[in-house]
Design a protein around this nucleic acid. Structure first.
Lengths: 108, 108
DNA sequence: TGGCTATTTGGCTATAGTACCAAACAACAC
DNA sequence: GTGTTGTTTGGTACTATAGCCAAATAGCCA
């Protein structure tokens, strides 16, 4: 596929890629309840500071979160709350998928 | 991050990963208008048969598309039409993001 | 059966993503 | 200034993903 064949799809893929990681999904779901700073995620997710910081940079580059520097801390918050609706929709797909797999087991 | 620390987020990430590729987004958007078989995508997307087949397998494993074998052909269709709503939501994020970048340029 | 079409799978290489550690920055306190 | 806290960046190793080609499979039609 040539790089510029589907510019719109590429732009959408970029945003979806930014969402497509467990830690980043956790971050987004947490930010839905209010802003947080980097170190708060470190304990919760259990990875290195630098790793969290990079995850947040990915979300920021995708236009999903925004920052607010106050003192030494950097507060992150959701820029497009619509992302939460999106994730609940993904949850529906997941449930649908799991239910189907379960019924496959039941009929074995 | 331990493998089982965030099972729900991991499951969601799996679905999002399946969506996070330009060709696969194109496939999904096309399937919104009705079922199609593998070879129809080959010309449109411009990659090898095997590559398209693998993309479709990824979408199938994620529970996003379903297959219907009729004769020699394998017809693919959307399993959860709600996926289309997600993508339009992503489009909103994209527009929001682009608009902001443009206004940055204007104020330079 | 053989030949044809449609699709999938295996193998390979190249590229991209993730996570760690260490070092660099930034803002405050002293 | 030095020290401390919070965050980012660079480097590196490892894993995953995407693409191609070739081979295998599946279903039709003579």
């Amino acid at each position: 596929m040539t790089k510029t064949k589907m510019p719109l799809q590429e732009a959408k893929a970029k945003i979806l890629k930014a969402l497509a990681h467990p830690s980043r999904i956790y971050i987004i779901e947490t930010l839905a309840h209010g802003e947080k700073c980097v170190h708060e995620f470190v304990d919760e997710i259990g990875v290195d500071f630098s790793t969290i910081s990079k995850h947040l940079a990915i979300l920021r580059n995708a236009g999903i979160v925004q920052i607010d520097k106050r003192g030494q801390k950097v507060f992150y918050s959701l820029k497009t709350p619509c992302i939460i609706d999106f994730l609940s929709c993904i949850e529906d797909v997941l449930k649908h998928h799991l239910k189907e797999q379960n019924s496959l087991f039941e009929h074995k």
